[in-house]
């Protein structure tokens, strides 16, 4: 019984939050790693593009809600997703056309392209705030809980409870679907294979007749899907605020680098590792051990390794360690 209680406690406070947060990070990190693999630069505007796509979803959701459309218990935002993806794709392809393509042509060093993405970051940042404002926006509707902590306690008779929200379930299911779709695309389709070939060896790929502009365009399209889905899930699960999305840049990059830049599987693994360690290291394990250990050995302190103030620093410490000991990341990424 105590063992079950401990497990449920851990599940409620560590595992479920970490897995849903990790899923959202994973989608973002996949985008970063793809851009890095194909276009060979670090996309600093990622967080803000994510906010832009989500903003489009929110605006359409509001419109749908105003029209009385609803798919209860699922959130209306899911219906608005395609529009959001289209808007994000438009933005990404537009920036590629007006900005990044020029640097590709002149074969500018990657660092210059990174600077340009900083400029895009500023502009998109400003645009999002200009259109929807800097504040929290609430666009979640539908049922909130699949089952609450109280339901769980009553059903099982345990002392500890476990709650599961619809948004968490949707996050996990959608992430799994999008990820398997992406891996299927990369491994099984002709376009996907040509993308991987391009990423592995650009010259060889060009020689075998792959059209680089097409590969680039497809990459941006995939990235648009990934960021918009990630941003919408994050917004549904937590809340939408432009500044928060900018801050997501850091853990997303940490995840991509941790897993090995350019390696999609690594990005996913990195994201879950970061999310689990962020939540796990700052969790106070006192109650957990109270259930597991005999009374005489019960801990007196909180058993918290690091105060929650330093939550975000966890991902960087991990990052630095990995970079020091395994500069290509946990899974072998590419380094140019």
């Amino acid at each position: 019984m105590d063992f079950l209680n401990a497990l449920v406690l851990l599940g409620n406070f560590v595992l479920i939050p970490a897995i849903s947060y990790g899923s959202q990070l994973a989608l973002g990190a996949l985008g970063i790693t793809l851009i890095y693999g194909i276009l060979r630069f670090s996309h600093f505007a990622h967080g803000d593009v994510m906010a832009f796509g989500t903003m489009a979803v929110i605006l359409v959701t509001w419109w749908l809600q105003g029209m009385g459309v609803s798919i209860d218990p699922l959130p209306t935002a899911l219906l608005a997703l395609p529009v959001g993806i289209a808007v994000a794709a438009g933005l990404l392809l537009g920036t590629d056309r007006t900005i990044y393509r020029f640097y590709r042509k002149v074969k500018a060093p990657p660092i210059v392209v990174v600077m340009a993405s900083l400029g895009v970051m500023f502009v998109v940042n400003g645009l999002v705030r200009f259109i929807i404002g800097p504040d929290d926006q609430n666009f979640a509707d539908g049922a909130r809980f699949l089952f609450t902590v109280r339901d769980f306690k009553e059903a099982t008779g345990l002392d500890e409870g476990l709650g599961l929200r619809w948004s968490q379930l949707i996050t996990i299911v959608v992430t799994l679907a999008v990820m398997s779709g992406l891996f299927w695309f990369l491994n099984r389709t002709r376009t996907g294979k040509s993308m991987r070939a391009f990423s592995d060896n650009e010259d060889l790929a060009l020689l075998s007749g792959i059209n680089p502009e097409r590969v680039v365009a497809v990459t941006w399209l995939i990235v648009a899907v990934l960021v918009t889905v990630a941003g919408t899930l994050y917004g549904l699960d937590k809340s939408f605020k432009p500044f928060t999305y900018f801050q997501l840049l850091l853990p997303m990059f940490a995840a991509a680098i941790l897993g090995g830049m350019g390696n999609p599987l690594g990005a996913v693994a990195g994201a879950y590792i970061i999310a689990l360690s962020e939540v796990g290291v700052t969790y106070a394990f006192r109650k957990f051990f109270q259930y597991l250990l005999p009374e005489s050995m019960e801990p007196s302190g909180l058993m918290q390794l690091l105060s929650t103030d330093y939550k975000f620093a966890v991902s960087f410490v991990l990052l630095v360690f990995v970079l020091l000991f395994r500069p290509t990341g946990l899974f072998k990424g590419q380094s140019i």
Binding site: V123, V124, N125, G126, R129, P134
Partner: peptide
Amino acid sequence: SAAHVRLLTMGIILL
């Protein structure tokens, strides 16, 4: 939203 013109301008200047 006038305050956000700032970020927009900085980005455009940089680009």
